[in-house]
Simulated scan of single mutants.
Amino acid sequence: MRTDEHVSIVPREAQPYQGRRAGLVTRSLAGVIDGVVVVVAVLAGYLAVNGLRFLVNPRGFQFSEASPLPSVATALLVLVVYLCVAWATTGRTYGCHVMGLRVVGRHGGRVRPVVALLRAVFCALFPLGLLLCAGGRHHSSLQDLALRTSVIYDWRPGQITMRS
């Protein structure tokens, strides 16, 4: 039996939001997921370094001390690299993927690598800039305003269409 009906990967309830700018709650949830990804990556790196130290000197092995300042600096560096690479290549981090979001440039296309890097640094150093997207009809964070980017609902891979 053949049907000419088009089957969409976007749930019927979500279709009106496809291409629209995302709000504070969805973006915050994506940010929390990305934060967990970064924490897991940093912990995995810590365990890997200590595993190598154990292999080199098993008898004198002790876990290295995780000092606060280097740990925070490492986590921020990992966060910036993770965000920059994700936004510059696919426009979405794992948190964005889970929440159906994509970061787009001013014309609705993929952000350039330099813009992705600046946005990642801005987001890592000033995460409270996200709160600005709670007001206004454009749902723009401070980072979006400064770099002319947007975060939109986008469940369709490879297709970017932005609506107001």
Rank of each mutant, 00 (worst) to 15 (best):
T149I: 09
F126K: 00
E65S: 07
G45A: 12
T93M: 07
A44P: 05
G35P: 01
A134N: 05
H97I: 01
A86I: 00
A86L: 00
A120H: 02
L128D: 05
M1V: 11
N50L: 03
Q62R: 15
T89R: 11
V25H: 14
H107M: 08
A14H: 14
C84N: 05
L47I: 11
V103C: 00
V56G: 10
L142C: 07
V78H: 00
L132M: 13
R21G: 02
H107F: 07
P70R: 06
P113R: 08
G35W: 06
D154T: 12
V78Q: 00
P11R: 15
S150C: 08
G95T: 06
L125C: 05
V7G: 04
L147G: 02
V49L: 14
G100M: 04
S28D: 03
C123M: 12
S71Q: 06
V32H: 06
V40E: 11
T89C: 11
L76H: 02
V80F: 08
R110D: 08
L77A: 07
L52S: 08
A66H: 02
A88M: 13
P11L: 13
G23H: 08
M1G: 14
P68M: 04
T26K: 14
Q15C: 09
R106S: 12
Q159L: 15
L117A: 13
R2E: 13
L77V: 01
G109A: 12
R112H: 13
V98R: 14
W87L: 04
V104C: 03
R163Q: 15
R163S: 15
R59S: 13
T74R: 00
F63S: 07
R156E: 13
L77G: 05
V121N: 00
S164I: 14
Q15N: 10
R156Y: 06
F54L: 06
A44G: 14
Y46H: 06
A120T: 06
P157I: 10
G135E: 09
Y94V: 13
L130I: 12
A41E: 00
M162R: 12
Q15G: 09
F126P: 01
G109W: 07
V111A: 03
M162I: 08
C84F: 07
V39H: 12
A41C: 01
L47R: 11
G129M: 08
L47G: 03
R110K: 10
F63K: 07
V42R: 02
R156F: 07
R112D: 11
F54K: 01
L29A: 09
R156N: 08
V80T: 10
G91A: 02
P70K: 03
V49E: 13
H138C: 10
C133V: 14
P70E: 06
Q62T: 15
